[in-house]
Design a protein around this nucleic acid. Sequence first.
RNA 1: GCCCAAGUGGCGGAAUUGGUAUACGCGCCAGCCUUAGGAGCUGGUGGAGCAAUCCUUGAGAGUUCGAGUCUCUCCUUGGGCACCA
Length: 810
Amino acid sequence: METYNPQEIEPKWQKYWEENGFYKAEDFSLPRRQAGRKPKQYLLLEFPYPSGDGLHVGHCRPYCALDAIARQKRMAGANVLFPIGWDAFGLPTENYAIKHGIHPSIATQKNIANFKRQLKNLGLSFDWSREINTTDPKYYKWTQWIFLKLLEKDLAYQAEIPINWCPACKIGLANEEAVGGACERCGAVVERKVQKQWMLKITAYADRLIDDLEGLDFPERVKSQQINWIGKSFGTEIQFPINNLSISVFTTRADTLFGVTAMVLAPEHPLVEKIVAPENKESVKKYIEDAKRKSDFEREKLEKEKTGVFTGSFCRHPLTDEKIPIWIGDYVISAYGGGAVMMVPAHDQRDFGFSKKYNLPLKIVICPNYPEPVCPILDKAYEGEGHLVSSGKFNGLKSAEAIKKITKELEKKKLGKETIQYKLRDWVFSRQHYWGEPIPVVHCPKCGTVPVSEKDLPVELPYIEKYQPSHTGESPLSAITDWVNVKCPTCGGPAKRETDTMPNWAGSNWYFMRYCDSNNDKALADPKKLKYWLPVDWYNGGMEHTTLHLLYSRFIYKFLFDIKVAPQKEPYQKRTSHGVVLAGDGRKMSKSFGNVVNPDDIVQKYGADTLRVYEMFMGPFDQAISWNEDGVKGVARFLEKAWKISLTCAGNKQSNEDILRAIHKLNKKISEELGQMKFNTIIAGFMEFVNLAQEKPTEVGSDAIERMLILLSPFAPHMAEDLWSRLGHKNSIFQEKWPEYSEEIIKKDTTILVIQINGKTRDTIEVKTGISEKEARELTLSQKKVKTYILDKEIKKVIFVPGKLINIVV
RNA sequence: GCCCAAGUGGCGGAAUUGGUAUACGCGCCAGCCUUAGGAGCUGGUGGAGCAAUCCUUGAGAGUUCGAGUCUCUCCUUGGGCACCA
């Protein structure tokens, strides 16, 4: 018997599949209503970032999983689109290029070639004819086009906002490069530097991004994380007058309005300058300067100790006209709720701490045990709801009702209104780096900011030698004068190009649309093709993208829907998430820990099929799990056994009843569980079948073996294909139809009946399937073992679950 | 603090959704084979006990004829958000 030699058979079949174009998705399948038209199925995985490190076995898990699903769906008759491409702009490549002295464009090519080789070694069934690359000008032309459309609809704008600035390296850092408030390169403390940035108005879509989640097949945790991130809260906006001005605050607890003892403004609040009393100017100035110097990190660290400074000024309570002191505190976020807070120390823990520190008064207005007039002595704020006290004509009302009535009263006085606040911020969409899509805009001294005209797209990223970040905070592109200096598209006068580039999320916003028509040079994609393929039926990706890429691309898709480019309002019908593969030591796989497992090594040692099956078997797909090479060996043993048993039994005629039943049960299991991504139990099912077949090989016929191979082919495609041909088949196993199972065969004419006494299992008996309760009862009571348990006790009740168990209560 | 998951053998994990807890794999033990094995094969393997039997799904209560699964309280771990007013 030929031994199982994956190193020999795998390249052979990979070549065969590719040459025969088995994975090509057909646009439109057949015309509508024509017989044989296949249903479309768009399966998508997050396209990889081709880093210099190459793929590790963690990347492979979702690839193997979706590949198995793609293969199965094709066999079940679907027209499957399973594409792949490269998300190649961005910092990691830029840093890699700087470190190794290789131009980013060269590094990208090199890395892509390496990734491609690695992926092809796994025998994944991607449609390579649709491959895309976000750094290809033919691709990013349309990324820039989308930007122009956003600009046209006022959803892109410029604003002065703080960025992370490393004073030592003199460069702006992305948030992920400044984790913990320290520069990733040199460790210096990161400062905030205000700079003009391009922003996208994602907040305009906040409600739709929440509401349209309904009806999508996303995991609950994904939905709730997005909803949380958007952070919608209903409340009241209240004006506190000060002379002819007013301070606007947002609160969700208007019922505590009579408990306000102070007003606290964020240090950046625009009114600060106007209202500080002369005698407090010095102390306020010092406080604000200190606050500015504090990094976000320090601000977080000081979470417990809130600080502030009195401005010396007072505003008026909107309903009582009382004088209310105005403070400044850096715990107030300037970007949320108007950058001002009404302080209610009795009913908010933060305010409680603040007023205790500065000896401010405290006024109880919510009583949890009304009508008991006595409220407990406070050692902390009471944040719950209750009945109002000391609140004038609102006394005795419950919180919820009081919020309504107080808001109404404020509305009457034009000092407040119902409002909604979001935590979601607009999206900072520019980077001062080289390796990204140029923002297609020109700055003209006469005409202002002018968009590049569509016919001049793409604005190509110039090939430059010095792509290191500049020390001025500007993009390195700003030094390329012959690229920067252009004629204004409007007036023809001298103007300058925008030198900022887009973040690496830009290309991934819409890449799944490009797969529908990846070579189109007239449009982002042919609308008919978009309509045929979209939405994506199934999108698998990492949880870490839930509030980034997944949210961003939903926003962009909705925008494209609004301008009639995208055919629906949501891009992804179903979302699943894979768990991370950790290294054997339980830590994240990382070059710096030296614990990365390279799939090349596993493929070389055990074969791609072993790697694929192990990836599926190692544990529940959506959970994090550690790599364990002993487990890989176990899978290798299993495939070896499956190989042997297939060749041993291939010449046998018909399987006996037990074997036939077992293979149909396995067939059923896979058909049911594949869609639920229960890969680990599916592989366990194969192992059980092979173990059973090994016990009685003479009873296993070629019918069962062939069925097993077809079932196995999505998971171990090379081995299944090879054995299929060894069994004498001239066609590819992937041209076979996905087999139907028969409930008739699965059903047995006897079943095991569990006997319980008082709910405890005491015995099992084999009985005819469909036995009546009366028969079962008689049979049970005649069992010797049962008799010893019952003895002379009285039988109170008998519970009979047909086909399962009988329970005798004594 | 808030939100979301999850706690089952020595380990990764199964359990048809309320019906034989520990499938499958790893590891371990014994035996066989081998010059040898970090190879292969066979058998065993939750705990206690000589045994019959008893105990066992983070802890405790509850519902039920019957609970890993449902309800409540608590504990622990992981993930996300976090001074969001």
